[in-house]
């Protein structure tokens, strides 16, 4: 039994987003964090100081550990933001602003 079977889910058609350049399958309604977990990814940020990897911690938008860059916008809480087809999701390094600047 997996969670989708457990809840009797019949989601709409899956679509593709990218994470650090590679395609990842997403289901409608899932958050960025849920899509990454389903793809086996549990970290998508390195901290500003020691550069340590982080991912979901509180899962409800309180802890800000799951910050991620979505479509060039850093500091999005992956556990809150729903995915949309074609989203470009990237590991956020530090504040994320260096990458955002480079992209423009």
């Amino acid at each position: 039994m997996n969670p989708l079977e457990l809840a009797g889910a019949g989601p709409g058609p899956a679509f593709t987003v990218t994470f650090d350049g590679r395609p990842v399958r997403a289901l409608p309604g899932q958050t960025v964090a849920a899509v990454l977990w389903a793809a086996g990814v549990t970290s998508w940020r390195s901290t500003r100081g020691a550069g340590r990897p982080r991912g979901v911690f509180c899962g409800i938008g309180v802890c800000f550990d799951c910050l991620v860059t979505v479509n060039g916008r850093p500091n999005q809480r992956a556990c809150l933001v729903p995915v949309r087809p074609g989203d470009v999701i990237g590991t956020q390094d530090g504040t994320g602003h260096e990458e955002a600047r480079r992209a423009h």
């Binding site: 809840a7 958050t31 991912g55 899962g59 802890c63």
Partner: peptide, 24 residues
Amino acid sequence: WTLPGVVTAGGAQAMLKGGLVVPG
């Protein structure tokens, strides 16, 4: 406790209830 894969108990439950996903 800061390692990826360590989540709050409620967080694991929230991700399961809302996104139908599990962390591992």
